[in-house]
Design a protein around this nucleic acid. Structure first.
Lengths: 137, 137
DNA sequence: CTCCAAACCTATAGCTTCTGGAGCATTAGA
DNA sequence: TCTAATGCTCCAGAAGCTATAGGTTTGGAG
């Protein structure tokens, strides 16, 4: 028997976020106490921990919803779960590549060492004039 | 004399986004035609291109607002512009590091090759059981 | 048993950065 | 002059929460 606050402390998911997940249908509406407060059991705790972990890995609510649905059917083949994870890995890698491009760009931009005036500041000029860029964003 | 559509085509910023930037105060409300349509000149085009470029680099609206304000005073020292860019570079680098951690984690998770059932799928088990993780997120 | 602070409840709004739609007006070219 | 493309305003929605207001319940101390 956990209150919503217990659940929050044990999973690291904030209280309003738990209620939000309930509203989004990621977790079922739990039983209530006589005074209408939410009361959870172990399975809900595990489910929430699963969600938390998947969110930490950057999976979308939609993907998590799919994975949770899959996990309800242990007998089915797991190709779909595999696909979701692989797909996410690809987007993570793309994001990394894009950010690394920005990193290189910004490194060039901050070559300005802050000891002249805005008029010839490289930061400002680089932003104003795209043709100064090395890459093609 | 550009219409909002011209401006959009020339800068790659979508029409509703231009109106949104006007509302947010990033660009001034331009003159209007007799029929109340927005009419822009070259300086607005350049300003919008600046914004577009900065957004592509991932700078927040707030940072861009600051940089635009700075660029209005070419005589001032550019230390502040430099600071904004450097700070952003740091957050970009942090984001890269974090995503690389996720990448490693996901690589382990997708070791499941999709040819068994959900019941013993590594993806599902890894998400359910945090203790299987190598790192400490 | 009584009291009170902490925790809980619902409902609603706000954050960020746009994006899209409805319903109507203007513009530019044939 | 006609009409398709474009423009206008206002409003809602997306993602994933977070916060606030105003009220109720709970659990432990005295």
């Amino acid at each position: 028997m956990y209150s919503i606050g217990d659940l929050s402390r044990r999973t690291g998911v904030k209280v309003p976020t738990i209620r939000y997940y309930e509203q989004m249908g990621l977790i079922a509406a739990p039983e209530r106490s006589e005074g209408n407060q939410r009361r959870y059991e172990k399975p809900e705790l595990e489910r929430l921990a699963f969600i938390r972990h998947a969110r930490d890995l950057g999976l979308s609510i939609e993907s998590i919803r799919d994975l949770l649905a899959l996990s309800q059917h242990p007998e089915r083949p797991c190709g779909e779960a595999d696909r979701i994870a692989k797909e996410h890995l690809i987007t993570v890698r793309e994001k990394i590549a894009q950010l690394q491009k920005l990193e290189r760009e910004l490194e060039r931009v901050v070559a300005c060492n802050g000891d002249h005036t805005i008029g010839d500041c490289y930061v400002i000029r680089a932003l104003a004039d795209h043709s100064m860029c090395g890459s093609d964003h």
